[in-house]
């Protein structure tokens, strides 16, 4: 089945007879090379198949296990505090939206209605992350699940806010973390009880986000009504590690509610007045989700607590990250 059709190279009939075994040997070698080639291709394709978009690489692996001050390297890189960095926001009402007579930088989409500048919204008790979700935390998720990611999402140090993730990536992280916290014995008891009672780890609604950022006294910025340098990372060229700015006056002691990276919410972008029952029945338009807080690249107007940005759910960007919320059933 593997001999040659032609005579041997450069020879006559006799030479052909003499070199026939060599030809057959050559054919056998060729057959073996073909088999080796196919085997190599199969093994290589197997490896490439796993690589697909981008799977966890060494960097993600290293990041996920690296020790960072204030975070637990052996527990999903979560903040090292009794509630894993979750801060309780007590139930109650707050002022949402902007009053242009007080805030000259207010945008039109921050107006409550045609007749009203701001609205009062009442929220039940909930918890929100003190920090934005970090590269280290997201790397732990990627490492555990093989979730596809852009290399740039994990290129910063583990204590930087994760960026270059989509809205759907953020939700996938939330779902995964919820299951991890439910299953882990290291989850603080109070937190586990909440989760067992039906509380969910997810993205904040824009109302939850805004109340946490400006408190119940309607501040323009998390620290008060006047812009102050040194409380937030804005107008700069890059993000900074989470919690880099000491802001004792900031609402509820939260970090980076202004600047650093925009934070995704689970509210669809639609005109005010805000309703606790977001209108999910109107499904005809293109999806656009609210993001809050501005980023390091923005100026003072965009890091106000009431600013509402809109983002496509598939967009990845250096300036967009997210923060977690724990919300009741």
């Amino acid at each position: 089945m593997t001999t040659d059709r032609n005579g041997p190279a450069g020879g006559g009939a006799e030479a052909g007879k003499a070199s026939q075994p060599a030809q057959q040997r050559g054919a056998r070698i060729g057959f073996v090379i073909l088999a080796v080639l196919v085997t190599f291709v199969a093994l290589w394709m197997q490896i490439q198949g796993r690589r697909a978009l981008t799977v966890p690489g060494n960097q993600a692996l290293a990041t996920a296990t690296e020790k960072v001050a204030g975070f637990q390297a052996d527990f999903l890189q979560l903040p090292d505090d009794p509630l894993l960095g979750m801060v309780e926001i007590p139930a109650g009402e707050f002022l949402m939206g902007s009053d242009p007579s007080v805030d000259r930088q207010a945008y039109e989409n921050e107006r409550w209605s045609a007749t009203q500048r701001q609205g009062t919204v009442t929220l039940p008790d909930y918890y929100i992350g003190r920090f934005e979700v970090t590269v280290g935390q997201y790397a732990a998720f990627v490492q555990a699940t093989g979730h596809a990611y852009l290399p740039s999402a994990l290129s910063a140090n583990p204590d930087y806010p994760v960026a270059n993730v989509t809205w759907t990536d953020a939700l996938a992280y939330c779902r995964w973390l919820q299951n991890q916290l439910l299953d882990s014995e290291r989850t603080p008891t109070g937190l586990r009880e909440l989760l067992r009672a039906g509380w969910t780890v997810t993205l904040p609604t824009e109302a939850e986000w805004e109340k946490a950022a400006r408190g119940s006294d309607g501040r323009l910025y998390p620290w008060g009504n006047r812009l102050q340098e040194g409380f937030a990372n804005f107008g700069s060229s890059a993000s900074r590690p989470v919690g880099s700015y000491d802001c004792p006056d900031c609402s509820y002691g939260l970090s980076d509610m202004s600047g650093n990276v925009w934070e995704l919410t689970r509210s669809p972008l639609q005109p005010y007045p805000y309703s606790s029952k977001d209108d999910f029945d109107s499904l005809d338009g293109d999806a656009l989700w609210v993001m809050r807080g501005g980023s390091y690249a923005d100026g003072p107007a965009n890091i106000r607590a009431a600013v509402r940005g809109g983002v496509d759910p598939g967009v990845r960007n250096d300036t967009i990250g997210f923060r977690l919320v724990l919300t009741g059933p």
């Binding site: 989509t166 809205w167 759907t168 939700l171 997810t202 689970r266 669809p268 999910f280 109107s282 499904l283 005809d284 338009g285 293109d286 999806a287 656009l288 989700w289 496509d312 759910p313 598939g314």
Partner: peptide, 14 residues
């Protein structure tokens, strides 16, 4: 959802 189909996003949330 990433293709901007709102129902897909809503299904992810709920």
């Amino acid at each position: 959802c990433e293709l901007k189909f709102q129902a897909g996003c809503v299904n992810l949330l709920e």
